[in-house]
Nucleic acid binder design. Structure first.
Length: 244
DNA sequence: TGCCATGTTAAACT
DNA sequence: GAGTTTAACATGGC
């Protein structure tokens, strides 16, 4: 479920609780549940794949990891699997199989909001600067670096590299300036396409290489390999994606 | 049926 | 203590 765009969709479906007081909190999350009731959920902020429920001096940070899910108003899984349930006057919010932390609100000040590819605060120039500092890093790794491209996940990584015709094992420092620009631009643009397609339930249909076997451009066989220090699945065309 | 994957953290190593 | 590697988490699709 969760790359950055999916998290934005989650935010849209839970934002209706913003401004409401939390009546009760329970679940198997290892946090101090007693501190939560009575707090007002002031705001919901997302940063890449993380969601911050901001309330008073605290913020509840939710990360869906690989298999996390949520539901609104109706508990959809057995009580035993419930990680966090927040009860509001107007309804209920449920989270499952996710990382939950109760943090000091101050942590929000430490976040580099300019790194969130889906945010209005996204600053491509800043991303470029960060990339310039690590010329030996592979493009397949840097796209997954949440400090540079917060919200980008493995699907977006694979699709972006195909779109710009760059081999996943290319070194960042070897990319011509125009390709570097394209990388940064597509990381954001594809994320918005992902968001749009996900909302329309047609995301998979639009995958060009991720989990695919045939290159949509040349008809050749795609390579599937775990690459980089992140060692995540890469799907790419040896012919249409140039190694820099 | 068993494998593995849209992800990250923390423990266990060196 | 640092940096690096491994395991844990635990669901659902193929």
């Amino acid at each position: 479920m969760p790359e950055g765009p999916s998290i934005l969709i989650m935010k849209e479906s839970i934002v209706k609780f913003a401004g409401e007081k939390i009546i009760s909190a329970n679940g198997n999350a290892k946090i101090d549940m007693e501190k939560i009731p009575g707090l007002t959920l002031e705001e919901i902020k997302t940063y890449g794949k993380q969601t911050y429920l901001v309330c008073g001096e605290f913020t509840i940070r939710i990360h869906l990891l690989m298999f996390g899910s949520y539901s609104v108003d109706e508990q959809t899984k057995p009580d035993q699997r419930l990680r966090l349930h927040l009860q509001f006057k107007s309804g209920d919010l449920y989270f499952y199989t996710c990382s939950v932390k109760l943090l000091d609100r101050e942590v929000l000040k430490e976040i580099d909001w300019n790194a969130d590819v889906l945010s209005d605060d996204w600053k491509p120039l800043k991303a470029r600067k960060k990339l310039k500092a690590i010329p030996d890093a592979l493009v397949c790794d840097v796209l997954l670096d949440q400090n540079i491209f917060s919200g980008v996940g493995n699907i977006i990584k694979n699709e972006v590299l195909f779109r710009i015709g760059v081999h996943p094992e290319s070194k960042v420092g070897n990319l011509p300036p125009a390709k570097l620009s394209a990388l940064i631009k597509e990381a954001r643009d594809y994320s918005f396409d992902f968001l749009k397609w996900k909302k329309e339930y047609v995301l998979k249909k639009h995958w060009l290489v991720h989990t695919k076997r045939i290159c949509p451009k040349c008809g050749g066989t795609l390579t599937k390999k775990h690459l980089g220090i992140t060692n995540r699945r890469s799907f790419y065309c040896e012919k249409d994606q140039k190694l820099y």
